[in-house]
């Protein structure tokens, strides 16, 4: 059982983070990206060509993470590989003892720097989850046996703020029916959509069937907030948030404050099982945020020192 699966099964507060993309530099380059927050997280996501830009492959980065003693979550998107290649990545991951898999549709090729590329989408994310689940039960999609069956802990993503918002919990439920056991949500800069999503997830029982982890993204400038709002598919930044940073005497500190406020509010929403943290800079923002919110280190959480995030 992976550390992430164990933490979720035990009902502990779960913390994952997203590794900045890697293009070169060997294991050192991988290590320096997670070293600042190493002690806090249960696992780190190895991304798959984020925003349709080519980088070192998720399987290669996941293996590197594991060699460095950090548990990986290998992301797989449907944009760049047909079903044979996706199944090969899953079998390859399991071969190296990588269990945590996060299945995504993927941004379109037009969001990247090689928009002339052919998009694949041979499977959609739900079919990819079901395929991974079939493999976990010892069969490729063809029905051919895999013996022994690979150990996989399958997750997915969902975006509570993208239309049709009223359908997002239904879609998440499909993912859970297909085999997902954790859901890392898209980055949010406002709480409304998350609160509505979680209320429905709790009411329908979804929050008990899968561990739901809202994502918090730390940025440093109003410019990056505006860039995210305009260019990152599926993420909106409310104008009030951008104005607040622009008006601040110290915009970087203000961005950090906003991140802390969002993270603190998100972890208190009923049904939330943990957080997924993203920082676009190689600095200690994630560790500082954990310190500020009083989130115990992973070791402390495992030893039962987890403090409930609810103010009494």
């Amino acid at each position: 059982m992976s550390r992430l699966e164990d933490a979720i099964a035990a009902g502990r507060f779960v913390l994952t983070a997203e590794l900045l993309t890697v293009n070169a530099g060997g294991l050192d380059a991988v290590h320096e990206r997670f070293a600042p927050y190493e002690e806090y997280v249960d696992a780190v996501n190895a991304t798959d060509n984020t925003a349709a830009h080519a980088h070192a492959s998720p399987l290669a980065v996941a293996i590197a993470l594991q060699q460095l003693g950090m548990e990986p979550v290998m992301q797989l998107v449907c944009r760049d590989r047909n079903r044979l290649a996706l199944e090969a990545e899953l079998a390859g991951a399991a071969l190296h003892g990588i269990e945590n898999i996060c299945c995504l549709t993927g941004d379109d090729v037009t969001a990247g720097d090689e928009p002339e590329a052919r998009r694949v989408f041979d499977l959609d994310s739900i079919q990819l989850i079901a395929t991974a689940n079939a493999m976990r039960n010892g069969r490729y999609l063809s029905g051919r046996k895999i013996d022994p069956a690979p150990r996989l802990f399958i997750g997915a993503v969902e975006n509570p703020q993208a239309p049709p918002v009223g359908h997002r919990v239904d879609r998440a439920r499909k993912k859970v029916r297909a085999g997902a056991r954790f859901l890392q949500l898209q980055v949010l800069f406002e709480l409304g959509p998350l609160e509505r999503f979680m209320a429905e997830a709790v009411a329908t029982g979804l929050a008990e069937q899968a561990a739901i982890l809202p994502s918090i993204c730390l940025v440093r400038t109003a410019k990056s907030l505006r860039y995210i709002d305009e260019h990152v598919p599926g993420i909106s930044v409310p104008p009030a948030v951008i104005e607040r940073v622009e008006r601040a005497a110290d915009p970087e500190a203000e961005c950090f404050e906003i991140g802390c406020e969002l993270a603190d509010a998100a972890r208190r929403i009923p049904g939330v099982r943990g957080l997924h943290l993203i920082s676009f800079r190689r600095e200690a923002g994630i560790a500082r945020l954990c310190g500020r919110l009083g989130i115990p280190t992973r070791e402390e959480r495992e030893l039962g020192g987890d403090r409930p995030p609810v103010v009494v």
Partner: peptide
């Protein structure tokens, strides 16, 4: 759908309900 998704919308749908692509 430019991504030929048969099981629901992707996460990139624009706030006005239009296609990411």
């Amino acid at each position: 759908c430019p991504k030929t998704l048969r099981n629901g919308p992707c996460g990139g749908v624009r706030p006005d309900g239009h296609c990411e692509v």
